[in-house]
Amino acid sequence: MPLIQDTSDFFDETGNMAKFTGHFFSHGLRPRFEVKELFAQCYTIGYKSFPLIGLTGFIMGLVLTMQLRPSLVSYGVQSELPVMVGVAIVREIGPVITALIFAGKIGSSIGAELGSMKVTEQIDAMEVSGTNPYKYLVATRVLATTLMLPLLTILGDAISLFGAYIGVNISSVTTIHLFFAQVFQSLSFSDILPAITKTFFFGFAVGIIGCYKGFNSSKGTQGVGVSANSAVVLSSVLIFIIDLLAVQFTNLLGLN
């Protein structure tokens, strides 16, 4: 009965993941903190992801503007282009696209790195050396992804809006001052706060899934590949689920 087996495996996996997350909170966040390693991970995860996030953000803003323009022109509201692009990027497209790119780059990297450490017994060696791997490997990476993704999203949004400004100027002439004045007039605190808040959860999901998959990697190079791949797939799916829940939650709070 493959269906029963698959269902059972799904619940097993979900339970193990919940247990791993519980272990992160109960063991990983206790002193003594691995501050040096946390900064090293913030550098690797945050700073080194910036060029990719910046480039994709710029292209996204540019393409979105070019795609929207014809529709707005047909309704005669092309002057609203900065407003529409600004709201779409800041509220939804910026955080989600940044998180998905982040999951592809960082989720796979964490899954592969920890998976490789697992199969070569480096995690066991760390434990034998008197280092708690949950603190040194998991807590530092999860905290780094949780803290860095909101920063990358803010920077990505800014570059994306600049891309949109270039896009607007391809077919018409608008000053940068006018463009950004229009964008910011249309945005309120209730647009920005939920959008940034949910990226903390996106970052946490990417980090914890990458670490979980790496820590539970099966032996061999194939196992490492599977860990990296499933870390990306699962964190991408979780990003959409968190996004859906975030929208529902902000609606409930009346922040829309």
Binding site: S116, T120, E121, Q122, D124, A125, M126
Partner: peptide
Amino acid sequence: DKVRTKIGFLFQANALYD
């Protein structure tokens, strides 16, 4: 952790941090 300072462990695949 304390008792592990008295025990050394040489892993089969060396387990050096690469």
